[in-house]
Design a binder for these strands. Structure first.
Length: 873
RNA sequence: GCGCGCUUAGCUCAGCGGUAGAGCGGCUGCCUUACACGCAGUUGGUCGGAGGUUCAAAUCCUUCAGCGCGCACCA
């Protein structure tokens, strides 16, 4: 047994142990195992991603669940992998190639060559995050690592497409979609983020055709789309304008067009809000979803004035053509002003949709796209509302339900190259949907599928579907899913639907949603703000265990997390505390892995510790059931620090230093027994240090990872003894407080005196322990109250003789302050007990409790009054 | 606009019907033979405001305010 170093150094331990675990194949899941299965699939991070604190939180929670399941004797599969992340990856590679001067645009390379570059890039830079997860201690089955573009996985994706096509759930249509002008692709509604924008509301006039000096005034935020207007709409119920319906107006832009080509109808439409702006709406069917519908209803032509990159085209007129849409807005307003048609511009705040990835305003655009009607939607909705599939925290189920209630067809095609190509083939007018090419004269659809169209199959496509594999049989449905609430629609909801559609069963039983990590100012962590710490740096500073524990301790269920590095420091300190507790035990001689404290004579302190351990183990169960990880961490922290170290070890020192003590063996056995259990309870949170201590102390012959989870109720102790320990601790607390009030620290020279009062007075051994707790040279029993500062304590009156230091006036004041506190407490209880209604309606055990408090306060007052007399003569 | 969440000590949060708690910070004193990544003590709150229910409310209900988030085709 090697001797533990005075301070825990994670660097000496973590990599070494992790290599051992992996080399031994500790996390290989065996689908043929007889043990009950437990499975988690990792939310696949982007291949191009690097580890963030969000990943640390998310994966630590998964690791805690996986490790605990192993200890509970389950066959655990934690399946890792990465996502090809279509837009994100393609953008990164494109940008890199541009920066290197290799291309100006992806078209310079062509599809095939470009994809080759992406694959190369993926081989070189991809999967960094997987290596980083290992530093965290993630117990994934790396032999099963999957990638959403693996060939087997790709086949799954395409088969699902073909199947849904055949079921007529997938269809092609020319529709208004969200278009990202930077990535030049369609997006789903979920990829559009509404942001508040401060802009201007432009009021401009439109002459009514055939009338002189008659104008309609229109309010718009987008004057640049005026050249695309093909109608003016008013509400038919609007008395101001109803009479104009059927007439025409003259669109002011582009001014160089002859007037007859700018003549547009005035239509009546219920959609127009009479109370907004001027009550007159310009209709641009090509660039606004609502206008598109109006256009269809009234069979209006559509004029596209913005191209796929967000620049104005020739239809916008000579002034605007070639301008970026933002610049065109200003230019169009200038044009109106020059024409004398701009009435006013007023500041205006509105909601504008932004592309999630490129962070630019999306452009509603009419185009040919593939859409999916969601399958198994009804079942997927009710499984959550009926709580058969449970969300933690529960309130997210409402968000889910609301989305499911308003399901819109999913635009699944993307005008990108990196991704799963749509398995649809064309030859002339013929269309075929199948995985393989029907022949060399067939041309495949150029688009790829939305990344989420592959990730939604993750829970079963990673386990060999559509084959009926042993893995699927053993591990599907998976048990827990841990993810962020930001992808509840993107991923969670869709996985549930795919699970029902293709496995006939829900993909997971519980979903735990983590909080978002924010900085001390409450801002989201992001690279651009520079407030996102590198987890690897944190691991180097505090150790993986310290980081894990520190982060989890401040991660309340369902709430966002204010990140503070101080907390990671505390995680490290805690690891060190645990280390030293074990080191101290080691210094007393070898540990006994089969230690059983009930076979030995014990001090009351041992019984007290065993009682607290039992309580801890019982408390943990409901906390795990509710996924209350921060509270679990808190409970473990408190037990180790306060119960084991501050109370038990301090009192055990008396035994340890006396080889002849009759309770020495019992105290050692208690220490071993409790440490053995506590290390196992801590292991899911702190895998490295617990393994190192477990093996070094010899509490187990083999790895702690496959030991067992302590069973509740195995601990036995004597409640009377535990209570006695409590008496001693409380007496010591009172004494320390008294000492503290005189600004003194403990010293060997200091002595306390005790006038005993309890039924069972302390033994000489107890007094030595009390002295140890008080950090003084000794406590002696006396029969007559000395003229010295006193505090009432459970064992009796505790005196601190202070020769020459005692000021009677100050001492009297101190005692009076104590009396006042006791009187306040007594008065509060008295008030309650004096209320007859309260006595009548409150439960008797509560009344008894209040009586007891009242009595104790009264007694304390008496004792203090007695003492005060000594200083008044 | 609809929905959800939060508001408790200087900070981060727990408590969710029966004497206001923890950690950190601040202050004071200690290198006490496991740990200064430590030990001991101490400071500090009319539990966002206003009503109500109850013998009893930080805790339940109503309402208001501030903050945050999600959803939503008001140009």
């Amino acid at each position: 047994m090697s001797e533990l170093a005075p301070a825990y150094d994670p660097a000496q331990v973590e990599d070494r142990l992790y290599r051992q675990w992996i080399d031994r194949g500790d996390y290989r899941a065996n689908p043929d195992s007889k043990k009950p299965g437990y499975a988690i699939v990792i939310p696949p991070p982007n291949v191009t991603g690097i580890l963030t604190l969000g990943h640390v939180l998310n994966n630590t929670i998964q690791d805690i669940l996986a490790r605990r399941a192993r200890l509970l004797g389950r066959e655990v599969l934690w399946l890792p992998g990465t996502d090809h992340a279509g837009i994100a990856t393609q953008t990164v590679v494109e940008r890199t190639l541009k920066k290197e001067g290799k291309i100006r645009h992806r078209d310079d390379l062509g599809r095939e060559e470009f994809l080759k570059q992406v694959w190369q890039w993926k081989e070189k830079h991809g999967g960094i995050i997987i290596q980083q997860l290992r530093k965290l201690g993630a117990s994934c089955d790396w032999s099963r690592e999957r990638f959403t573009m693996d060939s087997a996985y790709s086949t799954c994706v395409q088969q699902v497409f073909v199947d849904l096509y055949q079921k007529k759930m997938i269809y092609r249509g020319r529709r208004m979609v969200n278009w990202c002008p930077v990535s030049r692709t369609a997006l789903s509604d979920e990829e559009v983020i509404m942001k508040e924008q401060k802009g201007l509301l432009y009021h401009f006039r439109v002459p009514v055709a055939g009338e002189t000096e008659k104008f309609l005034t229109i309010a718009t935020t987008r004057p640049e789309t005026i050249p695309g207007d093909t109608a003016i709409a008013v509400n038919p119920k609007d008395p101001r304008y109803a009479s104009l319906i059927g007439q025409h107006a003259v669109r002011p832009l582009p001014p160089e067009l002859p007037e007859d080509q700018r003549r547009i109808p005035i239509v009546g439409d219920e959609h127009v809000d009479m109370t907004f702006g001027t009550g007159v709406l310009k209709v641009t069917p090509a660039h606004d979803p609502a206008d598109f519908l109006i256009g269809q209803k009234h069979k209006l032509p559509s004029i596209e004035v913005i191209d796929e990159s967000g620049f104005m085209n020739s239809h916008a007129g000579s002034v605007l053509a070639g301008l970026d849409r933002a610049k065109a807005r200003v230019a169009a307003a200038d044009q109106l002003r020059e024409l004398g048609l701009l009435e006013k511009e007023e500041p205006y705040v509105n909601q504008v949709g932004f592309s999630e990835r490129a962070d630019v305003p999306v452009e509603p655009r009419l185009s040919e796209q593939w859409f999916l009607k969601y399958p198994s939607a009804e079942k997927s909705r009710s499984i959550v509302s009926s709580k058969k599939l449970r969300f933690f925290p529960e309130r997210w189920s409402k968000v889910y339900d609301h989305w499911m209630e308003n399901l819109q067809d999913w635009c699944i095609s993307r005008q990108l190259w990196w991704g799963h190509r749509i398995p649809v083939w064309y030859r002339g007018d013929e269309v075929r949907c199948q995985v393989d090419s029907p022949g060399s004269d067939w041309r495949q659809d150029p688009d790829v599928l939305d990344t989420w169209f592959s990730s939604w199959l993750w829970p079963f496509a990673t386990m060999g579907w559509p084959e009926k594999t042993a893995e699927l049989k053993k591990f599907y449905p998976t048990t827990d899913l841990v993810t962020g609430p930001d992808i509840i629609f993107f991923w969670v909801a869709r996985m549930i639907m795919a699970g029902f559609e293709y496995m006939g069963e829900l993909p997971f039983q519980n979903v735990y949603f983590t909080g978002l990590i924010r900085d001390a100012k409450g801002r989201k962590l992001s690279k651009s703000l520079g407030n996102s710490p590198d987890p690897l740096d944190l691991i180097a500073k505090y150790g993986a265990d310290g980081l894990r524990f520190g982060l989890l301790r401040i991660a309340p269920q369902g709430a966002d997390i204010r990140y503070d590095e101080k907390q990671m420091e505390e995680g490290r300190n805690f690891a060190n505390k645990l280390w030293n507790a074990c080191r101290f035990r080691q210094q007393q001689g070898p540990s006994d892995p089969a230690a059983n404290p009930s076979r030995h004579a014990r001090t009351p302190f041992s019984d007290s510790l065993l009682a607290q351990l039992d309580k801890l183990e019982r408390d943990l169960e409901p906390l795990y059931a509710g996924y209350e990880f921060s509270q679990i961490a808190q409970a473990l922290y408190g037990f180790v620090w306060d119960e084991f170290c501050a109370r038990f070890i301090e009192t055990a020192k008396a035994d340890f230093m006396n080889p002849d003590s009759p309770t020495r063996a019992g105290t050692l056995a208690t220490a071993d027994y409790v440490l053995s259990r506590v290390l196992r309870l801590l292991h899911p949170f702190m895998p490295f240090i617990t393994e190192e201590l477990w093996l070094t102390l010899g509490l187990g012959k083999t790895t702690i990872q496959y030991s067992d989870w302590p069973k509740i109720g195995e601990v036995s102790w004597d409640p009377a003894q535990a209570q006695m320990a409590e008496t001693c601790y409380e007496t010591a607390d009172a004494g320390r407080k008294l000492r503290g009030e005189f600004g003194l620290s403990g010293s060997a020279k200091m002595k306390f005196q005790l006038v005993p009062k309890a039924k069972t007075p302390p033994t000489p051994e107890d007094l030595r322990t009390l002295a140890k707790l008080l950090q003084v040279g000794g406590v002696e029993l006396v029969s007559i109250a000395p003229k010295a500062p006193m505090t009432p304590a459970p064992w009796g009156e505790l005196y601190l003789p202070l020769e020459g230091l005692l000021d009677p006036v100050k001492e009297k004041a101190r005692l009076e302050k104590e009396i006042l506190a006791a009187e306040t407490s007594r008065a509060r209880e008295n008030a309650k007990l004096a209320d007859p209604k309260m006595l009548e309606k409150a439960p008797p055990e509560k009344v008894a409790e209040w009586r007891k408090i009242e009595q104790e306060a009264s007694e304390k007052i008496l004792r203090l009054r007695e003492q005060i007399k000594l200083f008044t003569t």
